[in-house]
């Protein structure tokens, strides 16, 4: 029975919905865990620093393919460990820019995968927040300094802010403990709204962020739909269900014998806007009809 090594940056609880999508993808190719494929899991439990060690552990085990979902950090950790073991990644950033693959159509080497447009659309989140708060001169941005995409996102956000004619309050957080100070800082600095950059650490802690945002009455937008689902205001980002499902398909195709260099990197072009009107009401904000009409999902 072939073995899939599954390198996960989070805990099984936080990753459940993604894992489900991954299993669906494997199932499309005809693999069902326990029946004709075994999955060897490694859980980093949110401690991203552990990823290289876990990746090395998986590679040392005789797995047929390493699946590295949940962000550029996971992909890079896996890639750094092995140049022979086939790796299928799932991330939000641009894999070429991050040095994960050589090109989208010909990834090269032993690695390929799926990328959503979450990282690319960070400025779009700023635009949406600006549209919601057209008269706000200053908006807060939170980034994870440990994320490989943090700098590029901040750069794009900076130029977008310039275009929109607003100023940015840049805040950093790389642990859960740093979340609350951010919101108190926003309240102090009188930034009208918060744009959360694309980062898996943030995405997987959408519930926590939503709670804090509502507590501090801060209008916020993140990449993951988990945020509005948990009571947050808005989200704009790639469809993780699709990206994880496609990662599952690619893992299955590799188990069937296809080579990673024959499988171009897939971009999940679907970007979804989810708006929670209940949260807007609680925040006392009116959301324009054009914004609502453009939303893929509206929670009332």
């Amino acid at each position: 029975m072939p073995v899939v090594g599954y390198l996960c940056p989070e805990s099984p609880e936080l990753f459940a919905s993604r894992l489900k999508a991954f299993h669906e993808g494997l199932g499309e190719i005809g693999f069902v865990e326990g029946r004709n494929v075994a999955i060897d899991y490694r859980w980093a439990g949110g401690q991203y620093a552990r990823l290289p060690a876990l990746a090395a552990d998986l590679v040392a085990r005789n797995v047929d393919v390493v699946v590295a979902p949940g962000g550029a950090q996971v992909a890079l950790a896996a890639k750094a460990t092995s140049t022979t073991k086939t790796i299928v990644f799932e991330m939000g950033g641009d894999p070429v820019q991050l040095g994960v693959v050589d090109s989208l159509s010909r990834p090269g080497g032993n690695i390929t995968g799926v990328s959503s447009l979450s990282v690319d659309v960070s400025p779009k989140r700023l635009e949406l927040m600006h549209e919601l708060l057209p008269f706000a001169a200053k908006l807060a941005v939170v980034a994870n300094p440990t994320s490989p995409t943090a700098n590029s996102q901040l750069q794009k956000l900076g130029s977008a802010a310039e275009t929109l004619g607003i100023s940015l309050q840049v805040l950093n957080a790389s642990t859960e403990n740093e979340f609350e100070p951010i919101f108190s800082a926003i309240a102090q600095e009188s930034s009208a709204g918060l744009v959360v950059t694309s980062d898996p650490y943030f995405a997987f802690r959408s519930g926590q962020l939503a709670r804090l945002a509502m507590n501090y009455r801060v209008p916020a937008i993140t990449q993951s739909r988990d945020f509005p689902d948990s009571g947050g205001l808005m989200s704009y980002g790639g469809d993780f269900a699709q990206s994880h499902r496609r990662a599952g398909i690619y893992a299955g195709r590799i188990l069937k014998g296809e080579k990673p260099f024959d499988l171009p990197v897939q971009l999940v072009t679907k970007v979804e806007l989810v708006i929670n009107l209940k949260a807007a009401k609680l925040l006392g904000r009116e959301i324009s009809p054009s914004l609502v009409s453009g939303a893929d999902e509206v929670i009332e």
Binding site: K270, S290, G294
Partner: peptide
Amino acid sequence: DERRRTEALRLFRQAPAIV
């Protein structure tokens, strides 16, 4: 024309192939 923008955004939702 705010109305056209609304329509354009609605079209995004209806036609996912339009970038």
